[in-house]
């Protein structure tokens, strides 16, 4: 059987410029009666890239930009009414916007875009705990972080949720967050009062809570621990392999631009999908989940529309 990806690609060749975007309105609704569709849009490591990359930025020149991202998100929302917009951390640092506005503008813009949740990346500590606390009220969405313990930083803890349960289209979505080890990365005085715990152990605990106690139908991890390392350090790939019950890991930190979401298959268990979309808001990820009447996850697919000139030739 020909799979849809190949099928679409072949069709696109035959159609010489068939705009895949044109398909999307039809895909926005489940074709199967009684099935429910939930759309996840995601970013990571946006790094204060509010304007598109300027000329002279190599392959990234002219890409990205918050106002464009907003327009794209609105378009997708029109067609996919049941959606979540999520981010995997490192909103701070990268352009003078951060040095000048300390992240406040980024959080305002993300609030305007309607983000549902983000997590804490290592750069969120660049201006110390106090620096985050100062601008965090501008974020009209929660930060989910499960393996950082804000035990002696109560002023930061008030903006953090250990886990988040959201109801979308009658489906219960559980979200937890993972942050990277501070060692050799975030100086002790900048993360004063915040302790790092092992992502694998914490993930097992979070999945148990979200799946068993909260009865979530879909479990998503917002991760800022990085996609994969050659030295075997804990990463998204390690978590996906060692922890059962995570449907989707939205990754960050390593600025990995995956060509496509990676599926970690597991013997006799449900697979985990890992997705990470580079950095600086150049790409927006979209992953759709389809549930049946009993809220059982039936089918998963990632966005099949690319919005760029390649498809704009007819």
């Amino acid at each position: 059987m020909i799979d849809r990806k190949t099928f679409l690609k072949q069709s696109a060749v035959v159609g010489a410029g068939l705009t895949l975007a044109g398909l999307k309105p039809m895909l926005g609704y489940s074709r199967n009666p009684g099935m429910k569709l939930i759309t996840i849009m995601h970013t990571n490591d946006t790094h204060a890239r509010i304007d598109p990359f300027p000329a002279g930025s190599g392959s990234l020149a002219g890409l990205g930009g918050a106002a464009r991202r907003m327009a794209l998100i609105n378009k997708i929302r029109d067609k996919y009414p049941h959606n979540l917009l999520l981010d995997a951390g490192d909103t701070f640092q990268g352009t003078p916007y951060f040095n000048y506005y300390n992240g406040a503008l980024d959080f305002k813009l993300m609030s305007m875009m309607g983000y549902d949740a983000s997590t804490i990346g290592n750069h969120e500590f660049d201006n110390a705990v106090e620096g985050f606390v100062e601008v965090a009220p501008k974020a009209k969405f929660p930060f989910v972080s499960s393996n950082y313990d804000f035990i002696d930083a109560p002023e930061m803890a008030q903006f953090i949720r250990e886990q988040l349960v959201l109801h979308v289209n009658g489906v219960k979505v559980g979200i937890f967050g993972l942050g990277v080890d501070f060692r050799n990365l975030v100086l002790p005085h900048l993360h004063k009062g915040v302790i790092y715990y092992d992502p694998v152990l914490v993930s097992e605990q979070m999945v148990r809570r979200l799946r068993t106690e909260q009865q979530c139908d879909l479990v998503i991890c917002l991760s800022h621990i990085g996609y994969q390392y050659s030295d075997g350090r804990v990463s998204d790939v390690v978590v996906a392999n060692e922890v059962d019950g995570i449907d989707l890991i939205i990754g960050g930190h390593t600025h990995t631009l995956l060509d496509e979401p990676v599926i970690i298959e597991k013997q006799g268990k449900e697979p985990t999908i890992i997705s990470q979309v580079g950095h600086a808001g150049v790409v927006l990820g979209q992953i759709d989940f389809e549930f049946d009447r009993t809220n059982r996850l039936r089918r998963t697919w990632a966005a099949n529309h690319r919005v760029d000139q390649t498809y704009d030739m007819v």
Partner: peptide, 25 residues
């Protein structure tokens, strides 16, 4: 089937000048 993985579609959305920016933002 729980996940029909063969049917996972795998393309990302690139944000470039084919997208008109949101005027208000």
């Amino acid at each position: 089937v729980i996940h029909d993985l063969n049917r996972v579609q795998k393309e990302y959305l690139r944000i470039d000048d084919s997208i008109e920016p949101d005027e208000e933002m």
